Simulated assay, not measured.
Amino acid sequence: MNTAQSVAKYLLDINAVTLSPNDPFTWASGLKSPIYCDNRLTISYPAVRKAIYTGMTDLIKEHFGDAEVIAGTATAGIPHAAWVAEEMNLPMIYVRSKPKDHGQGKQTEGVLKPGQKVVVIDDLLSTGGSVLKAVHAVQKAGAKVIGVVAVFSYQLPEADKNFGDEQIDFYTVTNYSTLIDVAKDNGDVDEKDLSSLQEWRKDPENWK
Rank of each mutant, 00 (worst) to 15 (best):
M88N: 07
K161C: 01
T54S: 15
L19Q: 04
G142S: 09
G147W: 01
D101S: 12
L197E: 14
A28E: 08
F163G: 01
E62Y: 03
P79I: 02
Q107V: 15
V151K: 04
S97R: 13
S44D: 10
K133L: 10
V138I: 15
L12S: 04
P79R: 04
G72P: 01
V84K: 03
L12G: 07
I180S: 05
K106A: 14
I121Q: 06
F152R: 02
K133P: 03
S44Y: 09
I52T: 01
E205K: 14
N175G: 14
Y171R: 10
S20G: 09
L179T: 05
V148R: 00
G103T: 13
N206T: 14
V131R: 00
M1Y: 09
I78L: 08
Y94N: 00
K106C: 01
C37I: 13
P204Q: 06
T54K: 13
A183L: 12
I52H: 01
K113F: 11
P204F: 02
G115K: 11
V120I: 14
G187Q: 14
V131Q: 01
N186Y: 14
D203N: 15
S97F: 05
G110K: 07
S126F: 00
N175D: 14
K133W: 02
D193I: 09
G110T: 07
W207M: 07
G103S: 12
K133Y: 04
T178H: 05
A74H: 10
S29E: 02
Q104N: 10
P157K: 10
K133M: 11
R40V: 06
I70C: 02
T26V: 14
D169T: 14
A74L: 14
K100P: 00
V48H: 03
F25G: 03
S20Q: 13
N22C: 08
D193C: 11
I146W: 02
P21D: 05
G115S: 10
A150H: 01
A150E: 00
L124P: 04
S177A: 10
I78A: 00
M56S: 07
W207N: 11
D38M: 00
V84D: 05
D122R: 03
G30C: 07
S44V: 12
D185W: 05
